[in-house]
Simulated scan of single mutants.
Amino acid sequence: MAPLRLEFAGEWHDVDAGEPFVIGREGDLSIDDNPYLHRHFLQLDHRDGLWWLANVGVRLAATVSSAGGAVQSWLSPQASMPLVFERNVIVFTAGPSTYELNLHTEAAPYEVSHQVGASMSGETTVMPARFTPLQKQLMVALAEPMLRREGVSVNELPSSSAAAARLGWTLSKFNRKLDNVCDKLDRMGVQGLRGGPGKLATNRRARLVEYAVTSQVVTRADLPLLDDESLRNQPDTDD
Rank of each mutant, 00 (worst) to 15 (best):
V89W: 08
G151N: 07
P109V: 01
F131C: 04
E210F: 02
S121P: 01
E156V: 13
A94Q: 04
C182A: 14
H13A: 12
A62K: 08
L60M: 05
D236C: 05
L200H: 15
T105Y: 02
Y99D: 01
V154R: 14
P235D: 10
E150K: 12
T170V: 01
R166K: 12
D228Q: 08
K177T: 09
E150P: 01
P133H: 12
G189E: 00
E111F: 13
W74C: 09
L223N: 06
L147T: 12
S73I: 13
T214G: 04
P35I: 02
L138P: 03
L29S: 10
A108D: 02
P96N: 05
R130G: 11
C182K: 03
S160D: 14
A118V: 11
G68H: 15
L6R: 04
L200W: 15
R87E: 11
T98V: 11
E86C: 08
S97C: 10
N34G: 04
L44Q: 06
P224M: 11
R39C: 01
E144Q: 15
P158D: 03
R5N: 06
L185V: 06
L167S: 00
V64E: 04
N34Q: 02
A108C: 04
S172W: 08
K173W: 13
G196W: 05
S161H: 15
L208Y: 08
S215P: 07
D227G: 07
E100A: 12
L167G: 08
D183G: 05
A221T: 06
R39M: 00
L103I: 02
A141G: 03
A201F: 00
L42A: 03
E150N: 13
L42P: 00
Q78Y: 06
V154T: 11
L29C: 03
A2Y: 10
V140Y: 03
E229K: 15
V209Q: 06
R5I: 11
A94M: 00
V56L: 01
V190D: 01
R59P: 02
V64I: 13
A141C: 06
G189P: 06
L29Q: 13
V217W: 09
G196E: 12
V218S: 00
W169L: 00
W52K: 09
A118G: 11
D16G: 04
L223M: 06
Q137G: 03
D48M: 00
A79V: 02
M1K: 10
M81G: 05
V71D: 09
A162S: 13
G189M: 01
K177H: 12
L134F: 01
V140M: 07
D186S: 15
V112C: 06
Y211R: 10
E11W: 11
W12G: 02
E106T: 12
L200A: 13
P197T: 13
Q234N: 10
L83Q: 08
V154Y: 02
R47I: 04
V64T: 08
Y110F: 15
L208A: 06
H13P: 00
L101Q: 08
A206C: 05
K173N: 02
R166S: 13
Y36I: 03
V58H: 11
G69N: 06
T214E: 08
N233M: 14
D48E: 13
G151V: 05
N175P: 00
E144M: 09
T93L: 04
L226R: 13
D227F: 06
D179E: 14
D228P: 01
V89T: 10
